[in-house]
Design a protein around this nucleic acid. Structure first.
Length: 500
RNA sequence: GCGUCGUUAGCUCAAUGGUAGAGCAGCGGACUCUUAAUCCGUUGGUUGUGGGUUCAAGUCCCUCACGACGCACCA
């Protein structure tokens, strides 16, 4: 048998060579694709834990394990032995194929390639150089890999191929796999944390006649059955508060949200948000809950109180710093209350700071730009910015003693807004007036102003208890806890244009 | 949407406007504890697409595609 007959090295010929080995395996009665199951005795990390005690040169005294995984590299030592690295989801482990143990089984080893999925039964031992290894007594090809893997040393680097063929990225760049597992652990921990505190998880619609609850352009689609336009949700806020009105007192949803807007380091058109609402509490209750969630997430990610991100050390230890919106603008921007509340003065301040603003920019937009330019660059350690102006907060309850401002906070970490919470506005008349103002802005030609959801006002008219609510940007939290520079590094399949 | 940069072998990267190269992977050979194994030999290219300038283009100019970064957008 000479699988190496095709000696060329274009991709097509590399594949042909591997197909020849597949044919040889089949001819030997070892069709890898015919198998349906493989019973493992250990994951690779379990082997590492169970046989960690072996000294260099020591064997496991005849004990055997059965493991499976992908061959990551093969080192041939003469005609009769091969060392290979095997990886599974849990770890990497070396295996040793030798004719002394395998006998005629060794013929299969000659037909193996990097990338093949194999099962191995054998005896654990530690090599003279100290590496825990499984000496194979039996080898089973569980899937032949027909395509060449990226280079073993530099791995797969090209970001375009990494995102397009994430499965290859995952198999050869272990930190990518680790980040995705950490993401899963963080979300599971948050869910567990909230479930233990008695919150009820619900699922609200993604397809809506009218997407509301935030100021963002929605994706638009169409229902053939109903022959009507539909929008993908931009927030879960309004439906979750309908749940509060209906009597689900501690409610949350972890789910995908869609915004038809720019893509950059911290924005993907679809992203994951946790939104939570609780009756009979307020923004202070949300603040304590928020600290608990960040700690639970950090713990799940095995991140301690001191954590380096983006070249800066973060101290993730509650209580987090607090600073009011006005104090922050005063301290970092030298701006006053009037510079914010008065539209003309806000524009003048923006001009002083050299901000390029569209003449059509609305008052809220100008104020937001002022904050972004002056305050955000200073917010590295977790910081609650509190008591925002009502003009930026159409769904939050006013402060009793200062009705131009609301009971709200945003949590900033590493310059990013990670959470946003407030005492929910439950006065239907105030809500209606704020919606009417937005409707006027919309009618006046501001396409960004949201279309009011009048049914939500009706829901408030039935009576919503005093309620605290919070939204947490899960992707950004995961970015911080996994040291990811880009949101794409915490998403399995970030949005890409179709390949040329 | 705008700007800058990038796209060369399966992967990672070289190449004054003058014969497209290396390492890894592959293939053949040597090697019974290797681990970026090592050593000998060897194959592999429509230089992202389409035009242009030139005696001559991977290289210069333009178009388009895709990507990265920045800006804009995203309270």
């Amino acid at each position: 048998m000479s699988p190496g007959a095709a000696t060329g090295v274009t991709e097509a010929e590399l594949i042909k060579t591997r197909r020849a080995k597949l044919a040889a395996l089949r001819a030997a009665g070892r069709d890898p694709y015919a198998l349906t199951t493989f019973a493992r005795s250990h994951t690779l990390v379990a082997v590492r834990e169970a046989f960690d005690h072996l000294a260099a040169g020591e064997h496991a005294g005849g004990a055997t394990v059965t493991v499976a995984g992908r061959l990551q590299s093969m080192r041939r030592m003469g005609k009769r032995s091969v060392f290979a690295d095997l990886t599974d989801q849990s770890a990497r482990l070396q295996v040793y194929f030798h004719t002394d143990r395998l006998g005629p089984e060794f013929e299969a080893v000659d037909l193996l390639d990097r990338g093949d999925v194999v099962g191995v039964r054998g005896e654990p031992f530690r090599t003279k150089s100290g590496e825990l290894t499984v000496a194979a007594d039996e080898v089973t090809v569980l899937a032949k890999s027909l395509r060449p893997l990226p280079e073993k040393w530099h791995g797969l680097v090209d970001p375009e191929i990494r995102y397009r063929r994430r499965y290859v990225d995952l198999m050869v760049n272990r930190p990518v796999l680790e980040a995705m597992l950490t993401r899963s652990a963080i979300i599971a921990a948050l869910r567990r944390h909230l479930d233990e505190l008695g919150y009820v998880e619900v699922e609200t619609p993604i397809l809506l006649a009218l997407a509301g609850g935030a100021n963002a352009r929605p994706f638009v689609t169409h229902s053939h059955a109903l022959d009507m336009p539909l929008q993908l949700r931009i927030a879960t806020e309004l439906n979750l508060k309908r749940c509060i009105v209906g009597g689900i007192e501690k409610v949350y949803e972890i789910g995908r949200t869609f915004r038809n807007e720019g893509v950059d380091r911290t924005h993907n058109p679809e992203f994951t948000m946790l939104e939570l609402y609780e009756a009979y509490t307020d923004v202070e209750g949300m603040l304590r809950l928020c600290e608990g969630m960040v700690v639970a997430a950090a713990h799940a990610a095995r991140v301690g109180e001191r954590h380096e991100y983006g070249g800066r050390e973060l101290v993730l230890r509650p209580p987090f710093a607090r600073m009011s919106y006005l104090d922050a603008l005063r301290e970092f921007g030298g701006l006053t209350r009037e510079d914010i509340l008065d539209e003309a003065r806000a524009r003048a301040a923006a001009e002083r700071l050299g901000l390029r603003l569209d003449v059509k920019a609305s008052h809220p937009h100008v104020v937001d730009k002022l904050f972004e330019a002056t305050v955000e660059p200073h917010l590295v350690n977790p910081t609650f910015i509190t008591e925002h102006p009502v003009l930026l907060s159409p769904l939050a309850k006013r402060k009793a003693e200062d009705p131009d401002f609301v009971e709200r906070f945003e949590l900033y970490i590493a310059h990013m807004e990670v959470a946003n919470a407030f005492s929910e506005l439950n006065d239907p008349d105030d809500q209606r007036e704020r919606f009417e103002r937005q409707a006027k802005e919309r009618a006046a030609g501001d396409p960004e102003a949201p279309e009011p959801d009048w049914d939500f006002v009706q829901a408030l008219e039935y009576g919503m208890p005093p309620t605290g609510g919070i939204g947490v940007g899960i992707d950004r939290l995961v970015m911080i806890l996994t040291n990811a520079d880009s949101i794409r590094d915490v998403l399995l399949f970030p949005l890409q244009r179709p390949e040329a």
